[in-house]
Each structure stands twice: as C-alpha cells, then as structure tokens.
C-alpha cells in the first residue's frame, strides 16, 4: 500500500506492506535512522517521534495510520541556523552518554515544551517516564529540559536560535 506523509517538512511517499510500522517506514524506507529500535513494543521510548504535535512510539503505530499526517523526527530539529536548544543543552550538559535513548528523549521533551513552555520538574519527570535510559540517568536530562525551556523563552524566534557563543 502507498503511504504519503509529511516528514520534517517534506512530503514523502513509500509503498509498504500494511504491517509496516511508522518506525520501520522512517528507518528503512526513508533512511531516517534517528529514531531507534530499542524494545519494539512501546516500553523504552527510543523510537519516539512527534505526529501531529504529539509524541508517540513510532513502533506502535502503523505507517498506514500516519498517512496524511505530519511527522517530525530528531533529524527535523536542527535548522540551517543551528541546533535546537534541547540539542544544544543536552550536548553541553552531558545529558547524552551512549546516546541511544537521546533522540527519543529529545523528541518527548520537545513535544512537552511545545505544549508547556515552562514545565515543572514533576511535569518533566512525568513526560519522560516513557523514555528509558541506562547510562546517563535522568538528572542531567531534567536539568537540560529546564535550561532549554529558558532558552526558548528568551529568544525571539526560538526554533531558529543560533548557538550561543561560548
């Protein structure tokens, strides 16, 4: 079957068998390997992408269900002008160790900040409950989300914020 969806601002199509998940579509057909296959049953969150503004497990959604929708993956965050504040902060604070959970965590955090520009620590914890990490731990990630929230609020065009001079 044919599916057509907007991925990171571009209209893309593929012909896939019906049992193809959104994760397989992104990774194997569109070569967007940022979303990871960790558990493949919606427990670990490594495959998190944003569909129509909501963070979802790409492994638990069929490609067919994403037809006609708008998907943002980790590859769609950085712009020509620079990194997304979450990417920048996570890099600076060492919130990415082995990095395998990173894209999922960043996408979940982005969906959170899009809806709630200044979340409390508890709100961040609740949002990240579905993203498992085995190396870094969650403290630096939570700090990072707070920091990114501040950066996003202090710039005029947040998504296009240039990396700050260090």
């Amino acid at each position: 079957m044919n599916v057509t969806l907007t991925v990171n601002g571009e209209l893309r199509s593929a012909s896939v068998p019906p049992e193809t998940t959104l994760l397989v579509l992104l990774r194997e057909h569109f070569m967007l390997t940022g979303a990871k296959t960790g558990c493949d049953i919606g427990d670990c969150g490594a495959c998190t992408v944003i569909v129509d503004g909501k963070a979802v497990n790409a492994c638990l959604m069929l490609a067919a269900q994403a037809d006609g929708r708008t998907v943002v993956t980790i590859e769609g965050l950085a712009t020509r002008e620079g990194l997304h504040p979450l990417q920048q902060v996570f890099e600076e604070t060492g919130a990415l160790q082995c990095g395998f959970c990173g894209p999922g965590v960043i996408m979940t955090a982005k969906a959170l900040l899009d809806e709630n520009p200044s979340p409390s620590t508890q709100e961040i914890r609740t949002a990240l409950a579905g993203n498992l990490c085995r190396c870094t731990g969650y403290v630096k990630m939570i700090d990072g989300v707070h920091e990114a929230a501040k950066m996003l609020q202090s710039t005029e065009t947040p998504a296009l914020a240039a990396p700050q001079q260090r």
């Binding site: 998190t48 638990l60 579905g130």
Partner: peptide, 12 residues
Amino acid sequence: AVVIGAVQTRNL
C-alpha cells in the same frame, strides 16, 4: 487516564 502507560502511549 494520566497514569496509563507513558505520554507516548497515552497519545495513541
């Protein structure tokens, strides 16, 4: 509803 799964599963 808010204690079911995690954000990602609650969205689906």
